[in-house]
Design a binder for these strands. Structure first.
Length: 220
DNA sequence: CACCAGGCAAGTA
DNA sequence: TACTTGCATGGT
């Protein structure tokens, strides 16, 4: 069992290496909090390029606002977001999210942002179609809450480096990060974005490029 | 051609 | 609780 202060130093070291290697990532791209929140649903199990196509489809018709999307028919919405895959499912999930905003926050994003992070997290998780990663992406990237986002890359990178067990679930992995890092929105934002950047380039599922990975010297 | 990408919910045993 | 399956487009 590795001592906690050693683990904390290791997490800082990883961050330093990644930041030096890749620089700031400027996440999350989006013109509004609402756009980021919708993007969080659209990006479920797909790549960002496809999400951009869907976002642009909506923007080109000037439909990317809470009111406009609320009035838009399910069928049209599904058609606009087709490039993201699972478009029927995601259209339904966006509709559920819009209803949630209307019912609990009178469709005012500003009210959402004022809420307590953990309470808001539980509310989001109660919305059908919003799981832990989507909820946390909204909390961190749309609502500026200090919540660490876990994704497939994060788990893969850290379990391959034996920093967490392979069978850690979402909550256990998130607890690991939040207990070993200072609670800082900007840090959480950059850290997760850097992990995704690293994952895409060096830590893919089947053909990881460990030889050229910036973290290869981690234990030296 | 196969495989993966910034997941989630519902069903089964 | 612990698996399994459906959802689906687009890039490499």
């Amino acid at each position: 069992m590795i001592q906690q202060h050693l683990m904390r130093n290791k997490l800082k070291k990883i961050y330093k290496i990644l930041y030096k290697e890749f620089g700031p990532q400027y996440w999350w791209p989006g013109d509004s909090q609402f756009e980021v929140a919708i993007g969080a649903i659209l990006t479920q199990n797909t790549n960002w390029q496809n999400v951009e196509k869907a976002i642009n489809n909506l923007k080109n018709k000037n439909l990317l606002s809470l009111k406009k999307l609320y009035k838009l028919s399910f069928k049209k919405l599904a058609d606009f977001i087709r490039p993201t895959g699972y478009y029927n499912l995601k259209a339904q999930r966006i509709k559920f999210f819009l209803h949630f905003l209307k019912e609990k926050y009178k469709s005012k994003i500003n009210l959402v942002k004022k809420n307590n992070p953990q309470l808001l997290r539980r509310e989001l998780l109660d919305v059908n179609g919003i799981g832990p990663e989507t909820a946390d992406s909204m909390l961190l990237y749309a609502f500026d809450k200090p919540i660490f986002v876990i994704d497939a890359y994060t788990k893969r990178i850290f379990s391959r480096h034996d920093l967490i067990p392979k069978d850690f679930d979402y909550q256990q992995t998130q607890d690991f990060f939040m207990q070993n890092l200072p609670k800082n929105t900007k840090l959480f934002n950059e850290y997760h974005a850097l992990l995704v950047k690293l994952g895409k380039e060096f830590c893919t599922k089947n053909k990881p490029k460990c030889q050229s990975c910036p973290l290869k010297t981690l234990n030296k």
